Simulated assay, not measured.
Amino acid sequence: MKLAEIPREKKISKADFIEKYYRPQKPVVIEELIEDWPAYKKWDLDYIKEIAGEKEVPLYDDRPISSKYKFNEPHLKMKMADYIDLLRSKPTKYRIFLYHLMKEVPALQKDFFYPKIGLNFIKQLPMLFFGGENSTVFMHYDIDFANIFHFHFHGKKECILFAPSQTRFLYKVPHALISRQDINFNSPDYNKFPALKMAEGYITELKHGEALYMPEGYWHQMTYLTPGFSMSLRAAPRTLTNLSKAVYNLAFMRYFDNYMRKLRGQKWIDYKNEQAIVKTHKKNKIKV
């Protein structure tokens, strides 16, 4: 695919970040933004196992969305210590997301600060995201259209991003925040998904302590190249348009989709996946 390297800054002032990246809504990796955080030196899998090993955590893998599971229903649960042992023992698709580990383990809250980078961060407890080697978070954008700073710890992580302007090429599933889950964005099938040839995105590899800025509404796919974990801080959308989209997603879209899943089951999911292709090809005047 047409994927340019995300720009990198070793350090950056608040003024330069706002001028070069926030206002034009462009992604950037800042390599030395959090070196003053206790987390920068402390946070690795051994530390998490020591401080949170007895907590039971929800796990998810990369199986396609189906009517069998409710929205965000975990596929498995186990103690954090056992999960970290699993991560270290072999590649696994199991991931942790949407789990308030910082609420469960308050000591972790002392290990980070909100960066003075010019954003008004939402002061809620951030969530941590864990993954095993080669596990992937499918291509999606966030429901609240937030501006996101994504910090990675322990190991390496590949990030593929697309701006909202590229949505027309990405086979977005209707009434959802995802593209079709059978697309391999590292090696796409252009015979089945020809619109992807026109998409232009970004790619980077995050290492321990690096921060990725993702502007509001950006699509992103994350692949853990090694076992590791990440944390995101969020700031509200800048524009009334994106704020209204966030309100619609939170107040209506997700409830409508849950209702239709309950009403029609797998037929609803299959219909949406079919419409992702139909609508994308129609929008781009592709005949197949």
Rank of each mutant, 00 (worst) to 15 (best):
Glu5Thr: 09
Pro7His: 00
Arg8Lys: 10
Lys10Thr: 12
Ile12Asn: 00
Ile12His: 04
Ile12Gly: 01
Ser13Val: 09
Lys14Phe: 07
Ala15Arg: 13
Asp16Gly: 00
Asp16Val: 02
Asp16Thr: 03
Glu19Trp: 14
Tyr22Gly: 00
Tyr22Trp: 15
Tyr22Ser: 12
Gln25Val: 05
Lys26Asp: 06
Pro27Asn: 10
Val29Gln: 00
Val29Asp: 00
Ile30Thr: 04
Glu32Tyr: 07
Leu33His: 03
Trp37Ser: 11
Pro38Arg: 05
Ala39Asp: 07
Lys41Ser: 14
Trp43Cys: 09
Trp43Ala: 00
Asp44Ala: 02
Leu45Met: 06
Leu45Thr: 04
Glu50Pro: 09
Ile51Cys: 11
Ile51Ala: 13
Ala52Tyr: 08
Gly53Lys: 03
Glu54Val: 13
Lys55Ile: 12
Lys55Glu: 15
Glu56Tyr: 06
Pro58Arg: 10
Asp61Gln: 10
Pro64Asp: 06
Ile65Pro: 05
Lys68Phe: 12
Lys70Arg: 08
Pro74Asn: 02
Pro74Ile: 00
Leu76Ser: 13
Lys77Leu: 06
Met78His: 01
Lys79Val: 10
Lys79Asn: 15
Met80His: 01
Ala81Gln: 14
Asp82Phe: 04
Asp82Arg: 05
Tyr83Glu: 09
Asp85Cys: 09
Leu87Met: 08
Arg88Glu: 15
Lys90Ala: 15
Pro91Ser: 08
Thr92Phe: 09
Arg95Trp: 11
Phe97Gly: 07
Leu98Val: 03
Leu98Gly: 15
Leu98Arg: 10
Tyr99Trp: 15
Met102Phe: 07
Glu104Gly: 00
Ala107Glu: 15
Leu108Pro: 01
Gln109Gly: 11
Phe112Pro: 01
Pro115Lys: 02
Gly118Ser: 04
Gly118Asp: 10
Leu119Glu: 05
Lys123Cys: 03
Gln124His: 12
Leu125Met: 13
Met127Thr: 08
Leu128His: 05
Gly131Tyr: 00
Gly131Gln: 00
Gly132Trp: 05
Glu133His: 00
Glu133Met: 10
Asn134Ala: 04
Ser135Lys: 00
Ser135His: 02
Thr136Phe: 09
Val137Trp: 08
Phe138Gln: 02
Phe138Ile: 04
Phe138Trp: 14
Phe138Gly: 04
Met139His: 04
His140Trp: 02
Phe145Ser: 11
Ile148Thr: 11
